[in-house]
Design a protein around this nucleic acid. Structure first.
Lengths: 197, 197
DNA sequence: CTTGACGGCTAACGTCATTAGCCTTAGGCT
DNA sequence: AGCCTAAGGCTAATGACGTTAGCCGTCAAG
């Protein structure tokens, strides 16, 4: 019987693809083995188990998303960069919901976890976008968290079918990004004007 | 041997409490049974199984969150209402992460699912908050989705330990809500001014 | 051509959700 | 009071899954 020629990388890629198809929560060793035309225990020659597999998918997702964000924002600044990054993020999650979901179930295990730099690189792209808005140093982290929360929340809700009105979701996304853009612009000068001019 | 005196409601409540403690993904029938001083199969006399249990927890969470939002925004309007609603949402998710997580894994099963009105009531509170900003009718859904995405994303990331800088998370939250408040205010007059004045 | 690490496989085990079927409880009815 | 039935416990059994142990063929390096 010839060999299947699997490696940790191909198994991870296949698992990620399968997770995108059936949902991360439905991903099982048996299903993955079947997809790879192999018996379940054979997978353990390449990955340490389900937890390790999830971790590998998370690293893959963070890396891919980081790449997508870098590519999208390359050569852009300000509003252009924000819009491009937001679109890229949404497009990635929509195209790869399973991978992205894996990333949300896994935390870095220790200080030398490769997941950490992968996430940092992804966050770095958002930071780069925000740099174009010339925020105060102490506001950059706030803005980064806001941006990430918003894009993460929107993407997750969209993918999970949480939006139930028939209003166009694309329009809502554009509107939201526009609001953030205007908000960040207004923040360039301190935003402590309390309620009315 | 005397009876334990369980009902669907008490089982659901115990499951929700347990999910808050150990995380929704760690909730198991065995653990829940142990907590209720009962053998696992006995639970099936009260709930239909794991899926039904998750659904019941989701309904509970949506109802409780709806109540919390209503209470928080009662008698407030505009910025006050927004801040109160945002705080209530964050406080609820922080206090009951397991219940809230259950709500994100469950979708309404059909047109007469009780989950639907529970979610609608929760969304209604946010709509009420937004009404204070006098938005155009066609922007209300956009604003609702934006608000929900932002609060959902922030809460989920916070609870899952996704924020890793040492900047105070409370400050970030206030900053974010402030940005949205200003953004919504600026939207009262059309926000179609494209990039620069 | 040999050889040894590598990568398949089968068999077996533990955990968990779920179902079937039994038996006791406890409250309502006569 | 005493019965009778529905409800709510329990044990036993099944099936899906993840995981481990151990066997055996493959294939590339020497």
């Amino acid at each position: 019987m010839p060999r299947a020629g699997l490696t940790a990388a191909t198994v991870t890629e296949a698992a990620a693809a399968l997770a995108d198809e059936v949902g991360f929560s439905q991903l099982s060793m048996g299903l993955l083995a079947e997809r790879l035309a192999v018996k379940t225990p054979s997978l353990y020659k390449h990955v340490g188990g389900q937890a390790d597999l999830a971790h590998r998918i998370a690293v893959l997702a963070a890396t891919e998303l980081g790449d997508a964000l870098r590519d999208a924002t390359q050569g852009r600044a300000g509003t252009d960069a924000l819009v491009a990054a937001a679109r890229a993020m949404r497009a990635y999650v929509t195209a790869h919901p399973g991978r992205y979901a894996a990333g949300n179930t896994v935390r870095p295990t220790g200080p030398d976890d490769v997941l950490t730099p992968a996430i940092d690189r992804m966050l770095g792209s958002f930071s780069a976008v925000l740099r174009g808005y010339a925020l105060d140093a102490d506001q950059e982290v706030h803005a980064l968290r806001m941006l990430r929360s918003m894009l993460h929340g929107f993407a997750v809700l969209e993918v999970e079918g949480g939006f139930r009105f028939d209003t166009d979701v694309d329009d809502s996304f554009k509107w939201m990004v526009d609001l953030v853009d205007h908000g960040l612009r207004a923040t360039r000068t301190p935003l402590d004007a309390p309620t009315s001019p």
